[in-house]
Design a protein around this nucleic acid. Structure first.
Lengths: 153, 153
DNA sequence: CTCGCTATCTTGAATCATTCAGGTTAAAGG
DNA sequence: CCTTTAACCTGAATGATTCAAGATAGCGAG
């Protein structure tokens, strides 16, 4: 089912962990690679894929690792309204997300502008803004297909 | 700042409930007015203010009422990452929000553009987009004051 | 005004995501 | 090889929200 073990460590994950000041363990390598190979997986999905590969790994370990990776800038944590946290490896480019209201599918969108914060608020109300987080809500093509006529084309 | 407590039912809340097809009860009037008078309150805050006014009201009632109001378009539910849901009465104008990373303060920002979706994704990936939800993250002036030098500017 | 329908409210328990606590194991620098 | 402490484990707690099922009360019809 799963494309097997040619996969070991796509880009040198061990080196990335090390240079982020983190220890290299089987669990963390698997977690990092899983996030990298996955498509905005949540903690549950990451955990079960890591378990497929390594046998047992605790939820705690996954939560802690994902925290550490997020703090180190190796992964980005996103949390659309109504969804548990999800993780992706595309970091540092301030891209945004499309979310399907029907099935929850999440798709990356390039930032139209570029550097963060790619947008400036009309009035910053005295805040110093460092990030503009944009989520586009709508219906993906599959869900529209499934409900022909119910949604505006 | 805010025009204060002439309060009882600022704009005719009873009529609004009725025309939304909802029943007029003391609890729901108080809940609606509380959201209206408050500043992005969460469910807890709404509940305790309503209790100050009416004595006992159950959490369930507040949750159900806020759901009903949201569905009816009387209030808008916002849910910034890491925060419980919050509610506001400014609806239908597609404005956005500034959130302070330090204290969690939430401030409205007018939409620079206007109609929803005020932004179009660079590539819609086949989605039909109906809303662009923009959250600006940063530090409010109070929090910067309190940490002079720690943050830029 | 009275009646019936059902929206609303109540209490109590369940669920889900996430975090906390405290003890054990093992990565990595000296 | 030894020591330090990051990483991991099990087990329990927390916080937000939802589910369930029975009681109450708006409000339109008669």
């Amino acid at each position: 089912m799963v494309a097997v073990e040619d996969t070991n460590h796509p880009r040198d994950s061990a080196a990335e962990l090390r240079s982020a000041g983190l220890r290299v363990t089987a669990a963390r390598l698997a977690i990092l690679d899983t996030v990298r190979a996955g498509d905005h997986l949540d903690v549950d999905a990451v955990t079960s894929r890591v378990r497929d590969r390594l046998g047992h790994v605790s939820f705690q370990a996954v939560y802690e690792a994902l925290h550490a990776f997020t703090a180190a800038g190796l992964v980005r944590r996103i949390e659309p309204a109504g969804s548990p946290a999800r993780f992706e490896c595309r970091v540092g480019d301030n891209h945004h997300h499309l979310v399907c209201r029907e099935c929850g599918r999440l798709t990356d969108v390039d930032c139209a502008v570029g550097e963060a914060p790619c947008l400036e608020p009309a009035d910053d109300a005295g805040y110093v803004v460092d990030e503009a987080d944009v989520t586009f809500w709508g219906f993906c093509s599959d869900c529209r297909q499934a409900h022909k006529g119910e949604f505006a084309q």
